[in-house]
């Protein structure tokens, strides 16, 4: 059985030989590639702490077998800032205290980036809460998270309009 795959992780192509087919994308990122920003919470697809973007779509990396994703384009929390400049979503989470302990935060931010890219967020807080419902925060920072997503959406809309003008 050929257990070699090629992934593009945060813009860099990686060729990887898997020890066996059981390895999830989450374990591959954390244990093989030392990208430990993506967190393991429940490991069952309930909590969303392991959320990454796979070919642009929000995905629970704990329930994705790496072997199944040959050729995929992966974006993790380590890949969203541009050098020292934070992604607008990261900056908004800081500005609005969108976390307390921080464990769920990488998953929250990846989910928020996915939500905004899907064009689903809009300006309605209820839609943001619904769109972020796959990410649990046991500290209960939901109010700050919702504010952060709304502000990031506004910032990105404004930047887009500026670019168009």
């Amino acid at each position: 059985m050929n257990l070699s795959i090629t992934l593009t992780v945060n813009g860099r192509e990686r060729m990887l030989a898997l020890p066996d087919p059981r390895v999830t994308l989450l374990d591959l990122l954390r244990d093989r590639l030392d990208l430990t920003g993506t967190k393991k919470g429940c490991d069952r697809g309930h909590c969303g702490a392991c959320t990454i973007l796979v070919d642009g779509r929000r995905t629970n990396s704990c329930l994705a077998l790496a072997i199944s994703h040959d050729g995929a384009d992966i974006l993790t929390i380590e890949g969203v800032a541009h050098g020292d400049t934070l992604d607008p979503v990261q900056a908004a989470f800081i500005a609005h205290d969108g976390f307390q302990c921080g464990y769920c935060t990488p998953g929250q931010i990846m989910s928020a980036i996915g939500l905004i890219r899907e064009g689903q967020a809009g300006t309605d807080p209820e839609r943001v809460r619904e769109g972020m419902s796959g990410n649990l925060c046991r500290c209960g920072a939901y109010a700050g998270i919702t504010e952060a997503v709304l502000e990031a959406q506004r910032a990105l809309d404004a930047a887009e309009q500026e670019q168009a003008a």
């Binding site: 796979v54 929000r58 995905t59 629970n60 329930l63 994705a64 989910s111 939500l115 689903q120 796959g134």
Partner: peptide, 9 residues
């Protein structure tokens, strides 16, 4: 069904 992450898979 579920949440967006679930619906994407």
């Amino acid at each position: 069904i579920g949440d967006t992450q679930v619906r994407n898979r």
